[in-house]
């Protein structure tokens, strides 16, 4: 029987199934054990697996990733939680200089199977240092895989792929998604492959490209556009690195218009890369320049009224669609 679970429960269920399957999988992070996680993703896991496999660390992101790299090279499969992905900025040296490069530098001799997961993007008034969307920075780095699932089913299936992958994987969970519900298959081998985008809604007049929580913003915008008689297709990218350009380009070939929607700062965010790829490869298919909706290029402000101005919403998407003509 498929179960209806929240996004956080789907992640937890996958963690449990993978820890039961493989003794080498262990969890490490700040307040994930006894406290059960600030977003409650790891609830109950400390009691179930004990301190050997659910390891509470001091607040020390660089060393957490450093230790995970060493443990991964020694044969284990660490899944580490960043209390927020914003904090992973402290650990960039270990992620980029070590985890991402070791396989290449050893011509494939060494592997670093590591998952770095946690909430990325704005929550609710967590302000400038806790609201980063860092996936674009990571997706810039050869040797990392970067995924941003939008639904409980994808979170469940992509985390399994992440844990079983022999590469370091950045797995970003928008905090706004933890409570959403969805069906997940009754199959503890269910895995969603990386590098495969999902058509979240079919349409024929234009393509909205999003990932993570912005997929839902695109879907809402598509509903509003439908009321105006415009048929929007929504592509949920899911996996940034590797990126499924085939599905994105295929949709653009059908609709001839595209708007890319992302929460990260508009300037230089990953949506800019997607837009550039569409422009580079689909020039003959396009009836209008590729549109972009991104986060405002300011540090995330605290006051709710300001914060909401920074995060793309369905109205921003409608405005961008209008500009395409």
């Amino acid at each position: 029987m498929p179960a209806t679970l929240t996004y956080r429960e789907a992640i937890r269920q996958c963690l449990v199934e993978e820890m039961d399957r493989d003794d080498n999988v262990f969890l490490m992070g700040e307040d994930i054990g006894r406290y059960q996680g600030t977003f409650r993703v790891t609830q109950g896991l400390f009691d179930k697996y004990g301190p050997r496999r659910v390891i509470d660390t001091p607040i020390v992101e660089p060393a957490i990733v450093g230790l995970a790299n060493g443990a991964a090279m020694a044969g284990l499969r660490p899944v580490i939680e960043m209390m927020t992905m914003s904090f992973s900025i402290l650990a960039l040296d270990q992620v980029i200089n070590h985890a991402a490069k070791i396989h290449y530098m050893t011509n494939g001799q060494a592997k670093c199977p590591l998952v770095v997961r946690g909430p990325g993007g704005a929550a609710n008034q967590l302000s400038a240092q806790h609201s980063h969307s860092v996936e674009g920075w990571y997706a810039h780095v050869p040797g990392l895989k970067v995924v941003a699932p939008a639904t409980p089913e994808d979170a469940y299936g992509m985390l399994r792929t992440a844990i079983r992958d022999d590469n370091p994987v950045i797995f970003t969970e928008n905090p706004g998604l933890y409570g959403i519900k969805g069906e997940i298959p009754d199959d503890n081998e269910f895995a969603v492959p990386f590098g495969k985008a999902r058509i979240a809604r079919e349409g024929s007049d234009l393509t909205l490209v999003g990932y993570s929580r912005m997929t839902h913003v695109c879907l809402k915008a598509a509903e509003l556009l439908a009321e105006q008689g415009i048929s929007a297709e929504v592509v949920d990218v899911r996996s940034l690195l590797p990126l499924d350009t085939e599905t994105i380009f295929g949709s653009v070939a059908k609709t001839h218009r595209a708007v890319v929607v992302y929460e990260d700062w508009k300037s230089g965010g990953f949506g800019a890369e997607i837009a550039a790829r569409i422009g580079e490869n689909c020039f003959d298919d396009l009836d209008a320049p590729v549109g972009r909706v991104g986060g405002l290029n300011v540090p995330m402000p605290y006051a709710r009224v300001l914060e909401l101005e920074c995060i793309p919403n369905e109205q921003d998407v409608l405005d961008a669609v209008k500009k395409l003509g």
């Binding site: 450093g66 995970a68 790299n69 060493g70 020694a74």
Partner: peptide
């Protein structure tokens, strides 16, 4: 920290 991770792996296994 990477070597400490090697030590952690030894302890876990």
């Amino acid at each position: 920290p990477i070597a400490a991770g090697g030590g952690l792996a030894a302890k876990v296994t």
